[in-house]
């Protein structure tokens, strides 16, 4: 986050996403872990790198990358201390894991098609709308010039 070169920032973001996928695998959430790899390490990071490369060329190099960094950093450190104290103080944190549940992709798909079918349909609609919206937003300037 504090690196000056934004491509380095994007690459460390990919590393963070891959590490998170490893944590998901460790927590017996295989499907979510592989989805994380597919969506974040595959798609979102490519999008971010392309956006960085497309918008970088005319940025002035000498101006500082951050504005009033101490306010934001102190807010974040304060939030982290609060959360860490709350986590360490609560008895929930001491809980050990239940025996590993059997979550196969088959049961996951059956759940998605029975209990969670309405959220699934809404999600499909949202993804379609987001894709169309992204294309239209990115195209608008070009069409206005014609």
């Amino acid at each position: 986050m504090s690196l000056r070169n934004m491509v380095h920032c994007a690459l460390s973001l990919v590393l963070t996403f891959a590490g998170l996928a490893g944590l998901y695998l460790q927590l017996n959430a295989e499907f979510v872990g592989f989805t994380q790899i597919l969506v974040y390490v595959g798609a979102v990071s490519i999008l971010i790198v392309f956006a960085i490369l497309l918008t970088r060329s005319t940025e002035p190099k000498d101006e500082p990358a951050t504005v009033t960094p101490w306010v934001g950093i102190s807010v974040a450190v304060g939030a982290f201390l609060t959360m860490a104290l709350a986590v360490l103080a609560s008895p929930v944190g001491k809980r050990l894991a239940a025996p590993a549940p059997e979550v196969s992709v088959k049961t996951l798909g059956q759940k998605l098609m029975t209990d969670y079918v309405l959220p699934l349909e809404v999600m499909a609609l949202l993804l379609t709308a987001a894709m169309l919206g992204a294309v239209i937003i990115a195209m608008k300037d070009k069409e206005g010039q014609r």
Partner: peptide, 13 residues
């Protein structure tokens, strides 16, 4: 979360 918060609050880009 806090690393993300610090980045979102401080970076200009």
């Amino acid at each position: 979360f806090c690393i993300g918060l610090a980045g979102a609050l401080t970076r200009r880009n």
